[in-house]
Design a protein around this nucleic acid. Structure first.
Lengths: 197, 197
DNA sequence: CGTCTATTTGAATGTACTCAAAAGCGGTGG
DNA sequence: CCACCGCTTTTGAGTACATTCAAATAGACG
């Protein structure tokens, strides 16, 4: 079994137990890929063929509106999964674009492979049930924060909760995650700096 | 099998096929409850013991912050499920409150029953995987709309997408779902009325 | 080194909130 | 069936939060 499988197998084993045959079968369905920063692994409008487990690196998924304004729906670092879930599951054109922020290595599962996995090893339904459940809860918390908190509070939360993301992406990207302009984030940071001293 | 099971069994059968024994077993784990409007089925701070399938009626789940400002995370009408997912799954104190807006009848599953269901009939892992996946996608769309759209656009979207919710709940409740004040929603509506004519 | 993009700064504007008060509406009890 | 009570909705003035636009500065990458 290839060395690059170790991390994802560890990840999987946090939620379900696999026999060595099952692990072998799962691994055989994975495709490994290394990509340099600025690569685009999914372009909105195209079909989203894979769900991506991040071994190393940083990625970003974002939506671009009709005025070319970007809104970042998620960042992904080591041990996270990233895809355009709606597009991947329903095999419809993607609404999101996914780009590589820091050189990355990925383990990819195609829709066909995942469907096969669910049939061959039903335990994976459980794994994905748990993953989707956690993703749902995370997004729900984010909606609540967006509804109830000011931009400044959201920024504080973000850098506190995801320090290893916030110091590897640009302020412009963080602003687009928080739903504010880069100019306003800059002003917030200035304000914060004076407060602390 | 009780008549009130029909709706939920129909719902389940949209995603998985059950034998009549399985359907019977599933039904035996359900608890049915009818509640008048203004009932509170979950109070924040208490433990969330059930996930609730709505047969009829309208419910609302909301967060109350330290300044007593409410933010509505979801409404539920017939054929929806509602719970404080984080609290239910992890059996931790609820952060949400769930209240009945219109007299309702519910089918409830306790955490223990659901866990048992996953063991006894693994197909339910699939059902919940799909449910959680859809919930995740919905919340993700909502985050993107909150980030990229104005309050007016969000209001338009809401009443277009959920007409049978928007005409059964108060404007105050809609405002708390959109993340704006009731006063501002009132102003938006006035504005909209003049535009149309 | 030079170019391109990110970040900062500031002024003017727009979007949404707060507070207070009036008007409207629904449910309840007489 | 009407009158009252409490809550929701509307209205308006004043304020705060966040955006836009433009220009200067700083940083990163080739």
């Amino acid at each position: 079994m290839s060395a690059q499988c170790q991390k994802i197998l560890n990840h999987v084993s946090k939620h379900i137990d696999l026999t060595s045959e099952e692990a072998e079968h799962f691994s055989s369905l994975l495709q490994f890929k290394a990509l340099p920063r600025q690569s685009v692994i999914l372009k909105s409008g195209n079909s989203c063929n894979t769900i991506n487990y991040v071994n190393t690196g940083v990625l970003r998924a974002f939506y671009t509106d009709d005025k070319d304004k970007e809104s970042t729906i998620m960042f992904a670092i080591a041990d996270w999964w990233i895809t355009d879930m709606h597009s991947f599951i329903n095999q419809t054109p993607a609404t999101l674009t996914i780009e590589v922020i820091e050189d990355c290595s990925l383990a990819q599962l195609s829709k066909a492979s995942l469907d096969k996995l669910f049939v061959d090893i039903p335990k994976f339904e459980r794994l994905f049930r748990i993953m989707m459940q956690n993703a749902y809860i995370r997004e729900q918390v984010r909606v609540l924060q967006n509804l109830s908190q000011s931009a400044e509070e959201r920024y504080e939360n973000f850098i506190r909760k995801y320090p290893q993301i916030s110091n590897r992406v640009t302020q412009k990207q963080i602003a687009s995650y928080l739903g504010i302009t880069p100019e306003f984030l800059s002003a917030l940071r200035k304000n914060r700096a004076t407060k602390k001293s």
